[in-house]
């Protein structure tokens, strides 16, 4: 995992209920709703937490960009378009 992926996976692992013990098992490309049961409000909490830790200003995203996010990979791509899974 890249450093950004590690951060994202850690936040997701702590968000879900019950928490995921090993964040390295998180699938970055998985649909957050279908695979991890993340609700729409929890999704916003997750994005906010990842942005805060990475020093990213959430307000720079458009409403559409935020509304279309379905995976951790998509969140990371918004934070850093150069970010690639596994790179």
């Amino acid at each position: 995992m890249t450093p950004l992926e590690t951060i994202a996976a850690r936040h997701l692992a702590r968000l879900v209920d019950p928490p995921i013990d090993d964040p390295t098992t998180v699938d970055i490309a998985a649909d957050l709703v279908d695979t991890y049961g993340v609700t729409s409000l929890a999704m916003m909490l997750l994005i906010t937490s990842i942005c805060d830790e990475t020093g990213t200003d959430l307000a720079r995203f458009t409403d559409e960009e935020l509304g279309n996010i379905r995976t951790l990979q998509a969140i990371l791509h918004q934070i850093d378009p150069a970010e690639r899974v596994g790179s």
Partner: peptide, 24 residues
């Protein structure tokens, strides 16, 4: 979409919400 982001940056005395928000 910005509710949690804003909440972390403000110091409100009252939060108007719904149970789902307070559950999060």
């Amino acid at each position: 979409e910005l509710a949690f982001h804003a909440l972390k940056r403000e110091q409100p005395t009252v939060i108007m919400g719904v149970p789902g928000f307070f559950e999060s």
